[in-house]
């Protein structure tokens, strides 16, 4: 049996080494080669992250990864982890997600088996020709955001949120269509933004992106006992931890390169400077949690 893993990112992306290869190895070894996992990279089985969940449910692929933020209406509670201040920046996202999964999040993943849930590195501000050290610096600037949560956060800070496909961000920064963007540091290398970004701001808790890897439920249930045991041994927290750590390492590398570059200024805000941002953003987080009735999910993520 050959299981198909749909990867919409390029084959060199962090996901391959951090998650796809370890999963493939575990399944291959656990079944002595009777079951294998084959990856289809670069969107060969359909482009982009937005439709991944549906593709897995419809059986186009058996397994695949995506971002809940691209179809935010399906994942109101999972996305609580993306909120500014939901979780201290130094705490791992995967552990928080799995703490809340059984009790609070599972119903957001119907018809699939959750293989991995993890968070990205912390969101930071990346700007062209502007320095941001206080919320006032953002006033009136056009900031590219990925979804509605980040859009509300930027509005709370006085910026103008702009929706733009990730592939157009490079050009947008270059021409001044946008002044900056809020995302994890890995986009500096993944989308070559380090070539056009001139300043980076770290420190404020701007939340983080979340990710899932799911498997078609009937396919999972139909696995041989051997294959299921091999997959069960790695799925869940183990593979999620491994993936998130690789993510954070990629981001750290990109951020180190930015620090080393003479073209990019890195503003590491201290606790006092960050507090001004965090205070302004607290209402966004509170309002979202109240709107989706997510107090229990947030408490579970925080381990309270």
């Amino acid at each position: 049996q050959e299981l198909k893993y749909a990867n919409w990112a390029p084959p060199f992306h962090t996901i391959t080494e951090a998650q796809i290869e370890p999963l493939a190895k575990a399944i291959d070894e656990g079944t002595s080669g009777a079951v294998t996992l084959r990856a289809f990279h670069g969107g060969e089985l359909g482009a982009g992250p937005a439709d991944q969940y549906v593709r897995i449910v419809q059986g186009t692929a058996d397994m695949g990864w995506g971002l809940p933020g691209y179809t935010s209406s399906q994942f109101p509670k999972t996305l609580i982890l993306e909120l500014p201040g939901a979780l201290p920046l130094d705490q791992p996202g995967y552990a928080a997600l799995w703490r809340a999964y059984e009790g609070e999040l599972k119903s957001e993943f119907p018809m699939t088996e959750a293989i991995a849930l993890w968070g990205a590195e912390p969101n930071i501000l990346m700007m062209k020709d502007k320095q941001v050290t206080s919320p006032g610096d953002l006033k009136g600037l056009k900031i590219r955001v990925a979804g509605s949560i980040a859009a509300e956060a930027m509005e709370a800070l006085g910026a103008t949120p702009v929706q733009l496909p990730m592939t157009q961000v490079y050009n947008g920064l270059q021409t001044g269509l946008i002044d900056g963007l809020v995302s994890g540091a890995s986009v500096l290398s993944d989308f070559k933004l380090s070539e056009v970004v001139s300043s980076v701001t770290t420190g404020p808790n701007l939340g983080r992106l979340t990710f899932y890897t799911v498997m078609n439920k009937p396919v999972y249930d139909g696995l041989s006992g051997e294959a299921k045991a091999a997959l069960d041994a790695v799925k869940g927290e183990a593979i999620s931890k491994q993936t998130e750590e690789a993510w954070v390492a990629t981001a750290a590398e990109a951020l180190d390169a930015a620090r080393a570059s003479s073209e990019i200024t890195v503003n590491d805000l201290d606790a006092a400077q960050s507090k001004a941002f965090d205070d302004a953003l607290a209402q966004v987080t509170d309002a979202y949690v109240a709107e989706v009735g997510g107090a229990a999910a947030l408490a579970a993520m925080r381990g309270e």
């Binding site: 549906v54 449910v57 419809q58 933020g69 179809t71 209406s73 399906q74 509605s148």
Partner: peptide, 17 residues
């Protein structure tokens, strides 16, 4: 068929829902 699935997954656009 996809539309029925979209309804079940509660899919909508990100900002205007």
């Amino acid at each position: 068929k996809s539309a029925q699935l979209s309804q079940m997954l509660n899919l909508s656009t990100n900002l205007l829902r």
